[in-house]
Design a protein around this nucleic acid. Structure first.
Lengths: 203, 203
DNA sequence: TCCTACTTACTTATCGGTAAGTAAGTATAT
DNA sequence: ATATACTTACTTACCGATAAGTAAGTAGGA
């Protein structure tokens, strides 16, 4: 682990946290600068504008994600491959919870702030999923499907679950249930989800 | 259909469109006022502040939703009842697309802008779902489940699908596919989703 | 006349972004 | 070895725009 990030790397890291916590609009560059212990215009030295900083933060994650998904979904067995797809996606979201929240926001916002570069990377992951589903269909294992919908089921279920810790607490409070007893950790949710998706898709 | 809404009702309707399109932060009361052909302070005559307007918009929908779900999920057969739950939820989101987008944003935002009154109504819908699942479990039809996760699967898949028309277009563009051919309408997505959920949950 | 439903004109606060300047380091010519 | 020219990585001070919200005044109906 690097004990010393460059200022630029630090801006990217802190910006990720802010965009994740508050969303694009409600994130103030002044606030990011303050945490980085620099002035706001110093951000403009490294990045053209707010949108460019956002793109840098986001593209880094989307590129990593599409790359590891492509590298991992290489199994012959479609069911196993689909499990790997969901697990890989899920584990990446756990490792990068900031990304998960930003991703969830972007989907809710019809990706209006998402630059084309990121849409291209996202499309690659959908392409990987589509290949898996088609391979399974050819082998008579999976039913004919709309890959985008399956992608949505996987991605939004996971990002939402990761992002809604407080909401779950509030809901369980209203229902008078102990949240500890009923609230599983996210690793379990991923495993549960992948089993359900496989079951739902199998002929 | 009422051909004449009161000014207050008109503010609520237009505010719903703006909150849905731009989110809470990026919605300007000035813009809402302009469309309603009144001045901005006229909004303050009817509502304490922006948050109160938002709560009014949101609570109206959440109350309606929890009410019709409670009214409709009264079947004996757990499978049929779960289908009704998903269909009712989905149809309401179709009828109120503004609400769907706001809902999606709130989930992505961990419901940080959602007032307690709305969380209570949301909890009622979760309670309905929990009853259905438990009834199915007792009858040996459904497997043991985490209702919140199932709720998330249903709600986020639908709200996201409804909200991401442009994103789908961009993704299909990147992949070089004709979006018309592959993009089903939302009614079909609801039916498809409910079948899949049933299949995934059945023992 | 007085309440309802506003309008006009304003304040305060915050944002993204820019202009201009500067300390510290580096490459190069002499 | 050192003076010169230049770059890197910032800072201070500020601008224009826009937002939420408010104080005070007013038209019109009961």
């Amino acid at each position: 682990m690097n004990k010393k990030l460059s200022k630029k790397e630090m801006i990217i890291a802190i910006a990720g946290e802010y965009f994740s916590k508050y969303g694009y609009d409600a994130t103030s560059l002044e606030a990011i600068a303050k945490v980085c212990d620099i002035s706001k215009p110093a951000i403009y030295y490294h990045f053209k504008d707010k949108a460019a900083l956002y793109e840098t933060v986001l593209l880094k994650r989307f590129s990593e994600l599409s790359k590891i998904i492509e590298q991992n979904t290489i199994l012959e067995n479609p069911k196993e491959n689909l499990t790997v797809y969901i697990q890989t996606f899920g584990n990446y979201l756990i490792e990068a919870p900031c990304f998960s929240a930003i991703f969830a926001r972007e989907i809710a916002n019809d990706a209006k702030s998402m630059p084309d570069s990121c849409v291209i990377e996202l499309s690659k992951t959908l392409q990987s999923l589509t290949s898996i589903l088609e391979s399974g269909k050819k082998k008579g294992i999976f039913e004919c499907e709309n890959p985008f919908m399956i992608q949505m089921m996987v991605v939004t279920t996971l990002t939402s679950y990761i992002s809604t810790k407080m909401l779950r607490k509030r809901v369980f409070n209203v229902l008078g249930e102990s949240d500890k007893a009923i609230d599983p950790n996210i690793e379990d949710v991923i495993e549960n989800l992948s089993k359900k998706i496989i079951k739902a898709l199998t002929c």
